[in-house]
Amino acid sequence: MKKPFNYEIIYSSRKTVAIQVTSDGTVKVRAPYRCPRSFIDSFVKKQESWVLKQLAKAEERRRNHPQDNHPPLSEKDRARYMKIARDIFVRKTEYYARIMGVTYGRITIREQKTRWGSCSSRGNLNFNWRLILAPEEVLDYVVVHELAHRKEMNHSRAFYAVVESVLPDYRRQKKWLRENGQKLWEAV
């Protein structure tokens, strides 16, 4: 049986199956390690109309905005950017953790499509390397935001009071990220 599109399967320790259509029109299926291929094929078949819609949108974006079509970043360049990001985030995290009187675990640099940073319950911090393309105040905000989770593991008023005690103008950085964050994906 001929499929209307090809897809790549990425196995990992996740618990669910998910489909991603990238901006360049690549279809990726993420699945748990022991998930049978027959289940994945069936799942994709059920999602076929959604995938085709997303592929059409990606094609339309490419046609209407050819200036946005950067060649994919090489692994060598990505590794270089991640190393630069690691150096910056380690330095900033050490600095702000001292000011805030908090500890943290490991720092990991990633390239997440939907997050700029995160803090686990164990205090491990993740930062998106693409933040190094933003103004420095924005990096400071993300670091302070994640470290504030070491005091308040939520987004309550108390949490934002912690952020504000360190960065009184944090709202400006938060707004910049909301309005301009997508541009960091288009920059390289």
Rank of each mutant, 00 (worst) to 15 (best):
A85M: 04
Y81F: 10
K83N: 11
V162A: 07
P71K: 04
H65P: 01
K76F: 12
P36N: 05
K28T: 09
R63P: 02
V163I: 14
R171M: 09
V102N: 01
E60R: 02
R115N: 06
K83G: 15
A158E: 15
K83F: 06
K2I: 13
S49K: 01
S121V: 05
K15C: 07
E179F: 01
A79G: 03
F5C: 01
S23R: 03
I99T: 10
V102K: 02
Y7S: 11
Y104G: 00
G181L: 14
A85G: 15
T114E: 01
V142H: 00
S38T: 13
V188D: 11
K183V: 03
K83R: 13
M153F: 15
N124G: 13
W185N: 08
H145Q: 02
V90Y: 07
D169Q: 15
G25F: 01
E186N: 15
R171P: 00
P168G: 00
L139T: 01
L131M: 06
K175M: 09
S165R: 14
K45P: 01
V188W: 15
A58V: 00
L55Y: 08
S23K: 02
L52R: 13
C35Y: 08
Q67I: 11
T22V: 13
A58P: 00
S120W: 04
P4I: 04
Y96R: 03
N154F: 08
Y33C: 11
V144S: 04
Q173L: 05
K175R: 13
K2R: 07
I109Y: 02
Y11M: 02
S156H: 10
V188M: 09
K57L: 08
F39N: 04
K46D: 11
I10A: 11
R37Q: 12
R63Q: 15
F43N: 08
E146W: 05
S49A: 00
L52D: 14
K15A: 06
L177M: 04
E111I: 03
T93K: 07
Y33K: 12
I84C: 10
P135G: 13
A18E: 11
R171V: 14
S12M: 14
R30F: 15
M100D: 12
P66Y: 06
L177G: 00
H145C: 01
R86Y: 14
L147E: 11
A134T: 08
G105E: 10
H70N: 10
E8S: 03
V144A: 00
P72W: 02
E60P: 06
M153I: 07
I132K: 09
Y95R: 15
F159W: 11
R91K: 15
E48L: 11
S156T: 09
Q47A: 15
S74C: 07
T16W: 01
E60W: 05
V138E: 12
V51A: 09
Y7W: 09
A31E: 11
F39T: 06
P66D: 11
S120Q: 08
N124P: 14
K15M: 09
H70T: 07
I10G: 00
A187Q: 08
L147Q: 07
I99C: 06
S23C: 01
Q67E: 15
K45S: 12
K175P: 05
R61T: 05
E48S: 14
K3N: 12
F127K: 04
R172D: 05
T22P: 03
T103M: 00
S42N: 06
E48A: 07
K46V: 02
H65R: 00
P36T: 03
L52A: 13
L52Y: 13
M82T: 12
F43R: 09
I88S: 00
Y95K: 12
E60F: 02
S42Y: 06
